[in-house]
C-alpha cells in the first residue's frame, strides 16, 4: 500500500505534495456526506414515485391480476400477446399518432408565428400579449377539459350559439359527441392550451438571432419576408429540431384533457393509448391490471424510442449550430 492510496503523507509534514491525493470510497463518502444527505429526499422520492412504479409495471405485465387482493398468476408474455391481438389497442395506437402528427406541426408553426409577432420591437403591450397566450398553459388541464364541455355544448355552448345566431348553422354541432368532430375538437383545445409553451421556446430562440444581421439585411433592401427567409429561419433551424421533438413528447401525453373532454368516446373514437390503459386498469367491471400494465410498458417503450430520436436530434442540432 502506498501513501497515494491511503491519502497519508509519505514523508512527514515537510514533504512536498505530489499531485492530488487519492482517497478511499468510504472516506470520500464521508467527506461528501452533506451532498448525499441533501440528495437523499430527491433520490427517495424519485425511487418511490418514478423508478418503483416503472419496475412494478414491468412485473405486473407478466401477471394475471385484478388488483383486488393477492391472487396473482404468472402468465409470462401472454398479456403482451393479448394486447397485440386487441384491435382496440391498435385503434388507440392509430389515434395517438394521428393526434401527434396533426397537432405537432400546427403547434410548432403557430408558436413560431406568435413568437415572431410578439418579438417585434414595435409591438405595443408585448407583456400583456405574452401573458395572455401563456395563461392557458398554467390553467389546470382537467378544469380546461370540463369547461370546454360547456363551451362546445351543442344546445347552449357559446360556440354553437354563435354559429346558430350568425346563421351559419340551423342547429348546433355536437363537437364532442360525434365521432367525426370529437378528436379534431380536442386537438384544437390542446393546441390552444399548450401553444404558449412552444411560443416561449421560440421567443427564447429568437433572442439568439443577432439583430445587427437582420438590420444589415434591411439596410441592403431586404423586406420582412426575405429577412426571415434568409437570415432568421436558417439561424433558427437547430431550434426547430429541438422544439419539434419536445412538442412530440408533450403531445403524446394527453390523458387528462382527453379523459375530461371525451373519456375516449364516442365509441373509442378519441381513445388514445393512455385512456385505453386507464380503462383496462380501473374502469372495467373487473380490472385487468396485468393486461393494462403490458399496454403501458409497450407505450413506455414507444416513448423511449421517441426519446432516443429526440436525443439524436438534439445532438445533430447542436453539431449543426457548432456547439460541442
Amino acid at each position: 500500500m502506498t501513501a497515494s492510496t491511503t491519502g497519508a503523507p509519505a514523508t512527514g509534514a515537510l514533504a512536498p505534495r505530489q499531485g492530488p491525493r487519492r482517497i478511499g470510497t468510504l472516506a470520500r463518502l464521508w467527506r461528501d456526506r452533506w451532498i448525499y444527505v441533501f440528495l437523499l429526499p430527491t433520490l427517495v422520492l424519485y425511487g418511490l414515485y418514478t423508478l418503483w412504479p416503472v419496475a412494478a409495471s414491468w412485473w405486473y405485465s407478466l401477471l394475471q391480476w385484478n388488483g383486488f387482493g393477492s391472487p396473482q398468476t404468472f402468465v409470462g408474455l401472454q398479456n403482451y400477446a393479448d394486447v397485440f391481438r386487441d384491435s382496440l389497442f391498435w385503434n388507440s395506437f392509430k389515434i395517438t399518432f394521428l393526434f401527434m402528427l396533426v397537432t405537432v406541426p400546427v403547434r410548432v408553426l403557430i408558436g413560431l408565428v406568435l413568437a415572431m409577432v410578439l418579438n417585434h420591437p414595435r409591438l405595443p403591450f408585448q407583456r400583456i400579449f405574452r401573458t395572455a397566450f401563456f395563461l392557458p398553459v398554467v390553467t389546470t388541464t382537467a378544469i380546461v377539459g370540463v369547461v370546454m364541455q360547456f363551451v362546445f355544448d351543442p344546445a347552449s355552448g357559446p360556440v354553437n350559439l354563435a354559429l346558430v345566431d350568425s346563421g351559419l348553422r340551423d342547429q348546433g354541432i355536437d363537437f364532442l359527441g360525434s365521432s367525426s368532430t370529437a378528436l379534431w375538437t380536442v386537438m384544437g383545445v390542446h393546441t390552444w392550451k399548450w401553444v404558449g409553451v412552444t411560443m416561449i421556446y421560440w421567443l427564447a430562440a429568437l433572442q439568439t438571432v443577432p439583430r445587427d444581421l437582420q438590420e444589415a439585411a434591411q439596410v441592403d433592401g431586404a423586406g420582412t419576408f426575405k429577412v426571415f427567409r434568409h437570415i432568421t429561419f436558417p439561424l433558427l433551424m437547430p431550434f426547430l429540431v429541438i422544439i419539434t421533438l419536445l412538442t412530440i413528447e408533450q403531445n403524446l401525453q394527453i390523458f387528462d384533457l382527453m379523459l375530461t373532454m371525451t373519456g375516449g368516446g364516442p365509441y373509442y373514437s378519441t381513445e388514445v393509448i393512455e385512456v385505453y390503459i386507464y380503462r383496462w386498469a380501473f374502469t372495467t367491471s373487473v380490472p385487468q391490471l396485468g393486461f393494462a400494465s403490458a399496454a403501458a410498458v409497450i407505450f413506455g417503450v414507444m416513448l423511449l424510442l421517441v426519446g432516443l430520436v429526440q436525443l439524436a436530434g438534439v445532438r445533430a442540432a447542436r453539431r449543426r449550430a457548432g456547439v460541442v
Binding site: 364541455q149 351543442p154 359527441g177
Partner: peptide
C-alpha cells in the same frame, strides 16, 4: 329530431 342535442355529452 326530438332528442336533446347535448345528450351525447
Amino acid at each position: 329530431g326530438s332528442l336533446f342535442p347535448a345528450s351525447t355529452s
